[in-house]
Design a protein around this nucleic acid. Structure first.
Length: 219
DNA sequence: CACCAGGCAAGTA
DNA sequence: TACTTGCATGGT
């Protein structure tokens, strides 16, 4: 069913060009800053960092905490996120001498476990970094993924992250480009049609895949 | 006005 | 273990 849905989404929306025009380090920063936050606000924060020439691990780590809080303020939760960003930077610097190239030479499962051990890095942030910064085949599950899959009856509403990821990776060939585009398309269809309240299934490209023509809404 | 956004950790029972 | 709450800004 997932391959079918992918074709419908790609035909309807076309390629989404994710992660939006960034270096691997920008992806890492963006992955933390976008936690429960609109990408719009994250871009302002990243623009501030770019204008200050701080999109490099050691440079960013040298910035005083108060100053960093001001720079990323538009992304919200700025105190929490400064703490999380600095934990991530400390990990990159201490374990990989500040080199993302070195970090991504680690094998996928080992690196994923290491990332999950960093304060502020949960499964979605870890997988976003692995896939979009590292080019490694780890399917990203987010709130949209859960909602779209569950409303079509492909998974239970109470399925956890690992169950959803296993379902997706079991249905799909292990292909970085596919994982990349699929997650971006799920975010797109989620924003446009599979909204949390008042979904617009009539105009959704996935409408023909709904069980009874209507979405399951146990959510 | 209420609600939402590409989560996660910490607190409570 | 299984809920619940705090975190902050900006758009609709």
């Amino acid at each position: 069913m997932l391959k079918n849905a992918y074709k419908l989404l790609l035909d309807a929306f076309g390629p989404q060009h994710w992660w939006p025009g960034e270096t691997p380090f920008e992806v890492v920063v963006g992955a933390v800053l976008t936690q429960n936050t609109s990408w719009r606000n994250v871009e302002r924060a990243i623009d501030n960092l770019r204008d200050a020439d701080l999109l490099e691990p050691r440079a960013l780590y040298e910035v005083p905490v108060e100053e960093l809080e001001t720079l990323i303020q538009p992304a919200g939760y700025f105190r929490v996120k400064v703490r999380r960003l600095r934990s991530m930077l400390e990990f990159i610097i201490e374990q990989y001498d500040g080199s993302l190239d070195a970090m991504f030479q680690t094998n996928l499962f080992e690196l994923r476990e290491q990332l999950l051990g960093v304060h502020g890095v949960g499964p979605e942030t870890a997988d976003s970094i692995l896939l979009y910064a590292g080019g490694l085949p780890s399917f990203v599950v987010d709130a949209y993924t859960h909602r779209v899959f569950a409303r079509h009856g492909w998974i239970d509403f109470d399925a956890d992250y690992h169950q959803i990821q296993d379902y997706a990776q079991g249905e799909l060939p292990q292909d970085v480009r596919l994982y990349n585009e699929y997650h971006a398309l799920l975010v797109r269809v989620g924003k446009d049609f599979c909204r949390k309240s008042r979904p617009r299934c009539e105009e959704c490209p996935l409408q023909e895949l709904l069980p009874n023509g209507k979405p399951l809404m146990r959510d």
